[in-house]
């Protein structure tokens, strides 16, 4: 299957000399949810802006649905819906007018039934005649999503969609995004909420200083880079790790707890032998538990490693 979005050698250097994107290559498949993670200023928004036509690239090409975003911008942009990071809406306009405007702007004829469907889906129908400035922050963000969906895009960019949104609305939004994915929409999500990426994305892309560090399936990334830790709680306090256990990668978390880090991918984790040796050293166990590192831990490690 050909990629829905194909990015080749994309670079962006601002007039100030700042390199926002540095030779980015990325392919995004139809119907997938890709989450772009990266610290502030990593280049996520610049990447989205170039794909959507808001910013000009310095070099490189972007194709959406097989259409070059510069040479064949009309066909490329028709496929794209964008929910920007900033809540940017005409304050004096009504909800229904601003959403209908977006549909017309993208060259589609009026379709009140479709607009109603979107507004109902996003719980905005009751507020359709309200002015934007009368809405809460969460509702404004939903209006942005409604505008992006008004022209039935095949690709949806969600740039920090959960920023400033309460937990309930965030969950609603996740459901909407999943429903869109089931309908075949490709979704590119940038977020600071790593749990959001972990819960929703099929693939994770990590970007730092304008470079894509990796793009990998979420589950595979968790498995490959995720480390497990075994926490051993002891009955009695311990001043130092006994010499007989010096061959293990052990850390003393506190005077009663030892932490053993191991690789889930290796054939032998060494847990059985460790526990035997712990008992042989005369230490009495009180409790044993394991902990999987989260995507957040992985992300922090990745960014740190690259910076080192």
């Amino acid at each position: 299957m050909s990629a829905r979005i194909s990015i080749k050698g994309l670079s962006k250097v601002y007039a100030s000399g700042l390199t926002a994107l540095d030779n980015v290559d990325l392919e995004i498949e139809p119907g997938e949810i890709l989450s772009l993670l990266g610290p502030n200023g990593a280049g996520k928004t610049t990447l989205i802006s170039i794909i959507c036509g808001i910013a000009n690239p310095t070099s490189g090409t972007v194709e959406v649905g097989g259409y070059d975003t510069i040479r064949d911008f009309r066909n490329a942009r028709k496929l794209i819906g964008l929910v920007p990071q900033e809540v940017s809406l005409e304050p004096f306009e009504t909800v229904i007018n601003t959403v209908s405007f977006s549909r017309g702007l993208f060259g589609l004829p009026r379709n009140p039934a479709h607009i109603e469907k979107i507004l109902r889906q996003l719980s905005l129908w009751d507020k359709r005649d309200s002015k934007i400035m009368e809405l809460s922050g969460g509702m404004k963000r939903r209006v942005l999503i409604a505008k992006a969906l008004s022209h039935e895009p095949q690709v949806l960019f969600l740039d920090e969609p959960s920023a400033g949104v309460d937990v309930e609305l965030r969950k609603d939004m996740w459901e909407t995004v999943r429903a869109l994915q089931e309908a075949g929409t490709t979704i590119i999500l940038t977020t600071h909420y790593i749990e959001e990426a972990e819960a929703m994305a099929d693939r994770i892309g990590v970007i730092r200083k304008g470079q894509i560090l990796l793009v990998e399936e979420t589950a595979a990334l968790m498995q490959r880079l995720g480390r497990k830790q075994l926490e051993i709680e002891l009955q009695a306090p311990l001043d130092a790790i006994p010499g007989s256990l010096s061959g293990y990668d052990l850390e003393r978390k506190d005077e009663r707890t030892l932490v053993y880090a191991y690789d889930t991918q290796s054939e032998r984790t060494g847990i059985t032998r460790l526990l035997n040796d712990v008992q042989a050293a005369g230490l009495q166990l009180r409790d044993v538990q394991t902990r999987q590192s989260s995507l957040e831990d992985i992300f922090v490690d990745l960014v740190k490693e690259d910076a080192a």
Partner: peptide
């Protein structure tokens, strides 16, 4: 000024 220009620039319009 209010940032809604993004929509115009990202629309399929010349």
């Amino acid at each position: 000024f209010i940032g809604t220009i993004f929509e115009i620039l990202s629309a399929p319009v010349s």
